[in-house]
């Protein structure tokens, strides 16, 4: 029975994927079907996002019910309280109203921006410790590129634009970095095609059995 269900799931994934792929190649014949399947998939993706939020609520709700007192209970309580209040406020006022924008601007923007600001400190700290951990020609090349790009990204204070630095930065970004990025993109595209084909052939089943 389990094996039959597993094969059935794989067949569903293969059939849906093949129809959409054929719709790319034969738009006149299968264009409408492809559009319908993609439309259904978009709505189901929204359901999947909703599922993630439901799971978040369940996890933190379960943490609240544990008898042992701990700071984690307080954190979960704060999370659930802020979630409920946000749903109430945005739900009543609509997502693009003044209060919804105020909520995002007041809570989400400062916290996320501050996290990114802390990231700057961490990145500088890790870059300065890199060579002491691993002395290798690629590390030297990496750090050299970082320093040159940083110095050439903007004119220097009290000095102004240094032509050689800005030219070097531009050359680094438009020639070797372009070549490397193109190679990476080609590799990512090939990997994505291979992974997609494996799913369409039933070899990989990320949806589970």
């Amino acid at each position: 029975m389990k094996k039959a269900l597993s094969i059935g799931n794989a067949l569903i994934a293969i059939a849906a994927g093949v129809l959409v792929l054929l719709g790319y190649l034969l738009p006149e014949l299968l264009g409408t079907l492809r559009t319908l399947l993609v439309q259904w998939a978009v709505i189901l993706a929204a359901f999947a996002l909703l599922l993630g939020i439901i799971n978040l609520v369940m996890v933190h709700g379960k943490r609240l019910t544990t008898p042992k007192a701990s700071l984690n209970k307080l954190y979960s309580a704060v999370l659930l309280l802020s979630l409920i209040l946000t749903i109430l406020l945005v739900g009543i006022a609509t997502p693009t109203s003044f209060w919804s924008v105020w909520l995002v601007s007041t809570f989400q923007v400062p916290v996320e921006a501050s996290l990114l600001a802390v990231l700057a400190v961490v990145l500088v700290y890790s870059a300065s410790r890199l060579l002491s951990r691993r002395l290798h020609w690629t590390s030297l090349l990496f750090l050299g590129t970082v320093v040159l790009v940083l110095l050439g990204m903007a004119p220097l204070l009290f000095i102004g634009e240094v032509p050689i630095l800005s030219s070097l930065r531009q050359w680094l970004a438009s020639v070797p970095a372009l070549a490397g990025a193109r190679g990476l993109l080609l590799g990512v595209a090939l990997g994505a095609i291979a992974t997609g084909l494996r799913i369409l052939m039933g070899v990989d089943r990320p949806y589970g059995d």
Partner: peptide, 27 residues
Amino acid sequence: MWDAFSLSLTISALMILIGSVSGVVIT
């Protein structure tokens, strides 16, 4: 923000340079 951004870039580059060199020397 431009002036502050430019200064922060310079300070970051210098800290990375000094930190790397000193790290290598200490090691």
